[in-house]
């Protein structure tokens, strides 16, 4: 099994190289140069030319790419044009906020989605199932941002239960208060994001449970005299939850995509918001770094899913 995992990790290397080359070329293709914006207006074109040459801007692309990669590993990602600070610091700060929100959303998604999916599957065709499915169809048919806007309007403005912007209250002092304030800021966006995220899980898990329920091996278990609750515990749940567990990795992608909407609407200073702003202000260094990061996280997500799947499913496990 270690061999499988190692092979899977090795496969990621060329993927990463291709991704980084694409991002690098994207960065090169963007208009402007790193100096025009920050130099003295009196600098002569000849001086500028010399400055660019000194920084290797006229080297062949692969040399430049190599320097870029080396810098990447040293955390030298360049300066943000808009925020006037190193991109690495900016992303550290924003990334942490997004990590908070994304983790919280993910926990909530599974905490709501798993029981609902199992419950719906178990009561297939009965009223409990119908209610869950109606809820699902409604959520599926309403665009995500509409849910967010309605949510923020009701619980943020009308009821005033939750803050409607920011990631932490500026008045929070001390460890306890800081954590509480952070939580307070992510409850509403997290809950709404989770509500949306559950749809797929509920739908998928429901059909998994129904499939398992009607499978021949469950019939065998009944014929063995296994009580119903044990059949659910040992056969149906286990068999339907494993693929879900394995797909957790893939859901990283969905979370990142979702965070762009959520952070924008909640003015939550995370990576998603940073990305949108960077696009708005043509903050190229930030854009390229984020594209690279998103790409990397995506690959990681798939990697995690593949590894988990190979661990939990004996049919895939290579012995």
């Amino acid at each position: 099994m270690w061999k499988t995992i190692l092979r899977r990790v090795l496969i990621m290397i060329p993927e990463l190289i291709v991704l980084s080359i694409l991002v690098f070329l994207l960065a090169k293709a963007m208009p402007g140069d790193p100096f025009s914006g920050s130099i003295n207006p009196k600098t002569s074109p000849a001086q500028l030319h010399r400055l660019m040459a000194a920084n290797g801007l006229f080297d062949p692309w692969y040399v430049q790419y190599w320097h870029w990669v080396v810098n990447l590993f040293h955390g030298k990602l360049g300066m943000s044009y808009e925020y006037q600070m190193p991109v690495i610091n900016l992303i550290k700060q924003r990334g942490l906020n997004t990590l908070w929100l994304a983790t919280f959303t993910m926990i909530l998604t599974y905490a709501i989605g798993l029981p609902l999916g199992i419950f719906a599957g178990k009561h297939e065709g009965k009223w409990q199932d119908t209610i869950i499915r109606v809820f699902n169809y409604i959520t599926m048919s309403v665009p995500f941002f509409v849910v967010l806007v309605i949510g923020i309007w009701i619980f943020g403005y009308a009821l005033g239960w939750f803050p409607t912007s920011g990631s932490i209250s500026p008045n929070a002092n001390g460890m306890g208060e800081t954590i509480l304030s952070r939580l307070g800021h992510i409850i509403l966006p997290g809950l709404l994001g989770a509500l949306f995220g559950t749809v797929n899980i509920v739908q998928y898990l429901r059909s998994q449970v129904i499939d398992a329920k009607h499978s021949a091996f469950v019939k065998t278990a009944v014929a063995k005299g296994v009580p119903e609750k044990d059949i659910y515990r040992h056969h149906i749940f286990r068999n339907s939850l494993l693929p879900i567990a394995a797909f957790a990795g893939y859901s990283i992608t969905g979370l990142l995509a979702g965070s762009i909407f959520t952070e924008m609407i909640f003015s939550y200073p995370g990576m998603g918001q940073l990305f949108l702003n960077a696009v708005n202000y043509r903050d190229y260094t930030v854009i390229t770094t984020l594209v690279l990061l998103y790409g990397f996280l995506n690959l990681m997500g798939t990697l995690i899913s593949d590894i988990v799947l190979s661990i939990v499913d004996p049919r895939i496990r290579v012995e």
């Binding site: 091996f217 065998t220 056969h235 068999n239 494993l242 939990v312 499913d313 004996p314």
Partner: peptide, 15 residues
């Protein structure tokens, strides 16, 4: 009462 089924692959839990 013991029971034996037609398709032995699907009659066993794959996991």
């Amino acid at each position: 009462i013991g029971m034996i089924f037609q398709d032995p692959l699907s009659a066993l839990n794959p996991l």
